[in-house]
Nucleic acid binder design. Sequence first.
DNA 1: CGAATCCTTGAACACCTTCAACAGGGGTGG
DNA 2: CCACCCCTGTTGAAGGTGTTCAAGGATTCG
Lengths: 254, 254
Amino acid sequence: MAHPAQQIIAPLDQTKLACKDCSLFQLCLPVGIDATELDELDSIIKRRRPIKRGEHLFHVGSPFQAVYAVRSGSLRTYVPTEDGLEQVTGFHLPGELLGLDAIHLKHHPCAAKALETTSICEIPFDRLEELSARLSSLQHQLLTIMSKEILHDHSLLMLLGKKSAEERLAALLLSLSERYQRRGFSPTDFYLSMSRNDIGNYLGLAVETVSRLFSRFREEGVLIVQRKHICILDLAKLRAIANHKSNRGEESGG
Amino acid sequence: MAHPAQQIIAPLDQTKLACKDCSLFQLCLPVGIDATELDELDSIIKRRRPIKRGEHLFHVGSPFQAVYAVRSGSLRTYVPTEDGLEQVTGFHLPGELLGLDAIHLKHHPCAAKALETTSICEIPFDRLEELSARLSSLQHQLLTIMSKEILHDHSLLMLLGKKSAEERLAALLLSLSERYQRRGFSPTDFYLSMSRNDIGNYLGLAVETVSRLFSRFREEGVLIVQRKHICILDLAKLRAIANHKSNRGEESGG
DNA sequence: CGAATCCTTGAACACCTTCAACAGGGGTGG
DNA sequence: CCACCCCTGTTGAAGGTGTTCAAGGATTCG
């Protein structure tokens, strides 16, 4: 199901769209790269056929050959646990890079699954490394993206380690809101492409808790929620919930 | 206080020790780098005077100029939360690199504090980037280390999102055990350089819970604990606790 | 030796989970 | 087109795990 808000993305038949013409240009790898360099980067990028909801971009353990940039749609990454369950490690929106955590082990430590119909740019890693050795701005951008990912993980760690259920969900909604805004969508009106189950899993909460929280937020006038459609009414209040409250956690003396 | 198990590290007056003579050679940046390349790397690395327990290597917000490798001792990294509390994001043992999460924002998003007397190699980042543009093995190693850090964070996310208190502490002890072993120390007999408070903070648990867990592990014959001194008696059982048990978490349908 | 800090243990409470039942969509087939 | 079913999402009640509050014991350092 294509969400109305996401239809400013180029239609699927324009799969040859160059980086320089991509609406995600400023959110993706090419940041800070000049025209001739951009052509070089462009030449190594492959555009894949869109993948459908539920299909995998890569599986756990599959050999690491490329990193991937989301062009449209969304995915979730997750790792299976020993018990046959799974832990969702992230949701990935247009302009975001996936697969960088595979560099170390040379195979993917997590799987990536499309949450809806999703189109992807594939960037062979050996060629990217080659190219980034020559283009210092690209090398820097690559490190920056990885650094950003570490940063994101740290904020998530804080979320899971210190925050209440209410704060966690508020933080996720705010994160999505900001990311949609940067991509030119409404920050207050969007569709969740992931299920309540995915959200609960990601935030370390039971599905029922997530559902109850949505209801509570609705009762408090923070948002309107109808199944997957979210309309944030009071962004300030949502921020207050995400940051404020909760005197949990310890001052760590040392 | 120097812990007996850590005295195989070179004494403090040998601060000019070259990478090639460092006992951490195979755990640090120089992995897979040949002799001449190593000299080049060596030439940009500064050895700093050891820092004492409680002193900071860098603060939150301080400008990003270098990454740091731990030579001896240990540190903890943490980020302050809005409420004036803090979240511990990691413990860092000899051979490990700190500061890579600062690349993106150009200033340190977390602070690093010595848990004991600690000596450090400082590696100016601009020169490291320069050098890694020329040495592809170094470039690759740098990406690998960042990838490894992302990987570590993901396992920690799983820990905080899905695991019980018992599993979390067991996992931390196993992680320390393995890391000490790789560094040539005993995997079953070591000193914790961090406080119970730090551990609880890191694992998202109250100090009291950590304390109770140590007692329970002792009662179950898994380990002997005397303040900071840990002696693991039953590594297999500790692994069982860390991996097995607990049917929490959700199968995430989609 | 005294003070401060860290660690441990106990009891009551809170938050979230688990278990259970039901409601609402979306797809399929008659 | 409607009935049916499956899946996702919602809501209620009971229970558990970890937290908070409180107090006492151990260790370190001036």
